[in-house]
Structure formats: C-alpha cells, structure tokens
C-alpha cells in the first residue's frame, strides 16, 4: 500500500468504523421493524440518537465509584475499536504483525468486562442484578466461543495468525459449520440481542447494566455497541467464511457474507423471546458444549486423515 493511502487509512478507519456501525444499527432497527410490520426509523436515526445523548447531562449516582463508572465505557469502546482496527488491517492494509486469534479473543471480552465494571460501580440494585447476569452470560458463552475457535485452529492446521486463517474458509466442513453456528449464537449473546439480552432486560431489570448511565456516557456505550455490530460479524467472516477482499467481486462477496451474518442475527433476535439466565448458561455449556466437542473430534479426525469435509 502506498504511503498516502496508508495515511488515509489511519485517518478514516476509526470514524469510518463508527459510521459503518451506525449504519449497521439502522439495518438492525429497520429490518426488525419490517419483520414487526412497522415502518422503522430513518437512516440517520442512530446518529441523531447519539447526538442527542451527547448533549444531555451526565448523572453519576451518589453511591457510584466515580472513576470506574466514568472510565468503563471508554475502555469498552477502546477495546472494540482496537479489534476492528485489527480486522481492517487484515483485509484492507496488511502489515507484518497484526495480532493473532488469541489477541482477538481477549479484545472481544473487553466490552463485556467494561460493562460489568461500569455497572457494578454504579451502586444500583438493578445494575447489580444486570452485572451478575452479564458475568454469568460471559462465563457461559466464552467457553463455547474459545472451543469454536479451537475447531478453526485445528481445521487450518494449527494457525493462530488471523491473516492466514482468513485465507481459508473452515465453515465449509461439518465441524467448521457446527463451530460457526455456535460462534454465531455467542456473538448474539455478546451483542446483547434477544434471546440473550438478559443483562439489560428492560421489562425485568429496567435496563440492568445500563440503568444508571446517561448523557454522553450512555452515548459511548451506544457507539461501542454500534462498532461491535461491525467488528463481531466481520470477525466471524474472517475466521469462518474466508475473509474479506478489497477489490471487485471479492469485495461484493465479502459484503454479502457480512450482511448474511447480520441478517441471521436479526432474524434470531426477532423470532425468539428472552430466555432466563440459567437457561442460557445451560444452553451454552451443555448443548453448545456437546456440539463443539463433537466438532473438535471430527476436525481432529479430519486433519489426521486429511479429510477436508469433516
């Protein structure tokens, strides 16, 4: 990549990701609305929401641990922006070291951790319940997610480097497909979408983890969520579906893969009620766990005997 292009990349990447995230937010809202026979918001609505929140007062509860409460959203946003940066570097502007799958796993936990920290610092009983639910949820899906990536690592012959993994498409095999489906559900939970919006559960704990946040801090959470809507599906595309090109058909194909994942997420979101936290944990540990153990066994057999479709 030439130097001016490189500079341009660094200039646009963060605002670009945020804007893409807001567009993704709009897609989620619009498609949900269409599924529910509503009209849905205009394209700029997520942006208006953020702008409006930015102008509002920030209220910090009396009992809150102020620093943690204020810093948590920024930490979460930073983590998820770093993740998206990594992914853009793989697809758009490759350099020597861009981090491997382990780093990505760490970065993906950051938003949830930040949410847990921030909400537990707020000192509200509703947030406390939300925090405990978020913690349980993280423990639930994180194991499944890591197992799903192990399948990928086995399928790609022990590769940890994301750029190399992105050259292959592990989902085109039985074990890879299983791992992909489980990872998709984990992403659903990471995004806090129904049926896994347990930590926020508006009608139960009135927003749970986010209940005490207002104004600009809430806006940061919203932006973080928007960026996650870009980064997490993109990560799935990179790891499972053979990555993302920058030119011609491979670009269109890449966008297609991304849209496919987002649409799947939206459909799951709109055709399910919220589950209880114990049901969610049972689902991830028990059902997803069994599926992934089977996938790992299949993948190992496949790589040992050189059978690609296993």
């Amino acid at each position: 990549m030439s130097v001016p292009l490189n500079i341009l990349f660094w200039v646009v990447v963060i605002p670009g990701t945020v804007i893409l995230g807001l567009v993704a937010c709009w897609i989620v809202r619009k498609v949900s609305a269409l599924v529910q026979w509503r009209v849905g918001p205009p394209l700029c609505q997520p942006l208006y929401d953020i702008m409006k929140l930015m102008g509002k007062e920030i209220l910090v509860p009396q009992d809150a641990q102020r620093t943690v409460f204020m810093a948590a959203p920024l930490v979460g946003l930073a983590g998820v922006l770093l993740l998206s940066m990594m992914l853009w570097r793989i697809t758009v502007a490759q350099t020597a070291f861009i981090g491997d799958i382990i780093v990505a796993i760490y970065l993906m936990v950051l938003p949830s951790l930040a949410l847990i920290l921030g909400s537990s610092a707020s000192g509200s009983p509703h947030a406390a319940i939300g925090t405990s639910r978020e913690m349980k949820l993280v423990m639930g899906y994180e194991l499944s997610l890591v197992l799903a990536f192990i399948v990928v690592i086995i399928k790609t012959g022990g590769q940890l480097d994301l750029a190399t993994i992105a050259q292959q498409a592990p989902a085109l095999s039985i074990s890879g497909m299983l791992a992909f489906l489980v990872a998709l559900l984990c992403v659903q939970a990471k995004l806090g979408f129904v049926p896994f919006d347990i930590a926020e559960a508006e009608t139960e704990v009135a927003g749970g983890v986010l209940i005490e946040y207002s104004g600009a801090l809430l806006a940061v959470w919203k932006v973080m969520h928007a960026v996650m809507l870009v980064a997490l599906p993109l990560f799935l595309v990179t790891v499972f579906l053979g990555g993302f090109g920058t030119t011609g058909w491979s670009l269109v194909w890449g966008i297609g893969k991304y849209v496919l994942i987002v649409v799947l997420l939206i459909l799951i979101k709109n055709t399910n009620p919220r589950v209880r936290i114990d049901q969610a944990m049972k689902f991830f540990w028990f059902y997803c766990g069994i599926a992934l153990v089977a996938a790992i066994i299949l993948a190992t057999i496949g790589s040992y005997y050189g059978i690609g479709w296993l």
Binding site: Q36, W37, R38, D197, P273, R274
Partner: peptide
C-alpha cells in the same frame, strides 16, 4: 406478554 419476555415481534403482530 410477548413484550414482557422480550418477544417484540409477537407484541407488534398481536396489536396489528
């Protein structure tokens, strides 16, 4: 009831 358990699609359809 659909809305309360986070099933907004049922909410909207039923009201329609």
């Amino acid at each position: 009831a659909g809305h309360f358990i986070g099933y907004d699609t049922v909410f909207m359809w039923a009201w329609k």
